[in-house]
Amino acid sequence: MHKDNNAVRDEIIRRSGVNPRKCMRCGKCSATCPAYDEMEFHPHQFVYMVESGDIEPLMNSKSLYQCLTCFACVDRCPRGVEPAKLVEAVRLEVIRKQGANHLKADDIPALVTEELPQQAIVSAFRKYTK
């Protein structure tokens, strides 16, 4: 398992408040999921992949947005794992990573020119240091 993946996994676990280790692999979440057929990765796989740090495929999969957040899996999980909360946490990870495509804050000073309005620099810092 890759170290970076561990860091992402730990962050997702922290953010969601879910302990995927409680999962006993009964599959009731996938049995109960109304959006099952639309998904590439099903709820039980989702929990397992987060636990093993296999987050990248989840972030790139459409499955992430097929979850209706109906919470049927949360309600029926006998171990109290709350898979839907993990889905939510991974979605948030995707959103937060979106900033990574943009300018790095450290790169901005090199791009500053005389013509650039002061306000634009300030807002660029505000935006890209978050």
């Binding site: 009964c26 599959g27 009731k28 979440c29 996938s30 049995a31 109960t32 999921c33 039980h44 049927a72």
Partner: peptide, 22 residues
Amino acid sequence: IKGMVGKVSPEGNKLMVQASDL
């Protein structure tokens, strides 16, 4: 079958069982 039943819904005189085959 390795997996759990998630939902049973009565429909007519049948029981629709939704389950996972892990």
